[in-house]
Amino acid sequence: MSKKIILDKESAEFTKKIIELSGEIVTLCEQCGTCSGGCPMCDKAETSPSLMMRMAALGQKEILGSDIIWYCASCYTCTVRCPRGIDISKVAEALRQIILRDSVNRIDLSKLTPAELEKLPQIALVAALRKMTG
């Protein structure tokens, strides 16, 4: 199966936006796959972290619809292992922020029952709200 990749002004601007928000030069990624190899969520997501990096470098906006950016819990395993020194967790955060800053929330705590809310530790709720709401 072949896939046509279009590099135009729009894709270049998207990549630039990711670089600005994350502070990371995503185009440095050489696709070695170390991030995907150590990622605890890689086998549970449809998109791997290395594919996320490739799509970010090529400015492909479809990456915003991927599940990996939400499954990433910022465990920083990829960050400490990237041989190119890219903080990949910051790239995932930038992609989440692009969505959240349009006031599109990923979670809705009102869907949890009072019993579930009572059981959860505060840091779980604060962290989830910080990471998944705008």
Binding site: P40, K44, A73, C75, T77, I107, L120, A127, A128
Partner: peptide, 20 residues
């Protein structure tokens, strides 16, 4: 000992945390 437990994903993706 150093693998992520899934952290705050326990709020909305509990099944992933259970697996980890």
């Amino acid at each position: 000992s150093r693998l992520c437990c899934g952290s705050y994903q326990t709020v909305n993706a509990r099944e992933k945390v259970v697996e980890l």
